[in-house]
Simulated scan of single mutants.
Amino acid sequence: MDYRTPAGVVTGLDDVTLRVPAGGITVFAGPSGSGKSTLLRVLGLFERPARGTLRFDGVDTATLRHSGRRALRRDRLGQVFQNPPENLLDYLSVADNLRAAAQSARRCCDPDEILGQLGLEGTGEWQVSALSGGQQQRLAFGCALARGSSVILADEPTSQLDEASADLVLGTLRYLAEREFAVLVASHDDRLIALGSRVARLRDGRLEGVERR
């Protein structure tokens, strides 16, 4: 993955070969600038690799037009950003955020069922601003469930949270892993890394190795 800068072309990722399983938590770990977030954007189909191949369920994504990539993101991929408010529509209630997420993927959902699964019972009529940061991140993962996403990508989902709020997010990740969702997380949070069934460690845009647990 290359980026053009005033100083010239910078390579964000180089020679990364990785197979991501269809279930469990895969953590991309490494220091700042190691390529974690770039790799997540490539896997989420927000960026096209300058070289190499990215396959999703055997399909070479390079052969997809913009509409095909957009449809794949809509129907199969859920994205959770590190800043909780960026994941949600603050002018909608908690339940309506879930309904809107489902509608964006042309689906229906039962908000009460999803909220119950995530430990957010009774918050359906609340405004998003009434939730703590950890609850907002839980709701963001709930929106991915409402869309029917089979793959959920999260970029540093605990980095903006205090310890208690981060605990809520870690609990949600455990829940998703137990139900065989494919969760791909970029993080340097040691507690989150410990949850990973696979940990891919990156440095300077290169893959140093993959730990399987």
Rank of each mutant, 00 (worst) to 15 (best):
S149H: 01
A130R: 15
R147L: 09
D75P: 04
P6W: 07
L139D: 04
R212G: 00
V185S: 01
G142S: 12
S129A: 15
L54K: 09
G68T: 03
E86F: 10
A29I: 02
R191F: 00
A101S: 00
L118K: 08
S197K: 07
C143K: 08
A164I: 10
R147C: 10
G30I: 08
E208H: 12
L54M: 12
L18Y: 02
S165H: 11
T5S: 14
R206A: 13
R48A: 14
A29Y: 00
E211L: 14
C143P: 00
A146N: 05
V94F: 05
A186K: 02
R191K: 14
S32M: 13
L115M: 07
L176C: 08
R213C: 00
D190T: 14
V9G: 02
R203Y: 08
A182H: 09
P49G: 12
P84F: 08
A29D: 06
L170H: 15
L207T: 04
S150W: 01
T38F: 11
G8H: 12
N97S: 01
S149Q: 05
R179E: 01
F46V: 10
A186N: 04
E86P: 00
E208T: 11
R212Q: 12
F56R: 02
V16I: 14
V9Q: 07
S104G: 11
G33K: 04
T11H: 14
Y91A: 14
A102W: 02
Q137P: 09
G171L: 03
R107E: 09
L161C: 05
L77S: 07
G116K: 05
Q82R: 08
E113L: 12
Q127H: 13
R4Y: 11
I25C: 09
L139I: 04
A102H: 02
L202E: 05
D189A: 07
A164Y: 04
F46I: 08
T61H: 12
F56A: 04
R198I: 02
R107F: 04
L176W: 01
V10E: 04
T158W: 05
V59P: 04
E163L: 11
R19I: 06
A62F: 02
I152W: 00
P157W: 03
T5K: 03
S129D: 13
L88K: 03
V151F: 15
S67G: 11
L64S: 04
R203I: 01
L13C: 07
S67L: 10
L192G: 02
R76F: 12
F141N: 04
L18C: 07
D90R: 14
L207N: 04
D96N: 09
P31G: 14
V80C: 08
V210Q: 09
G35M: 05
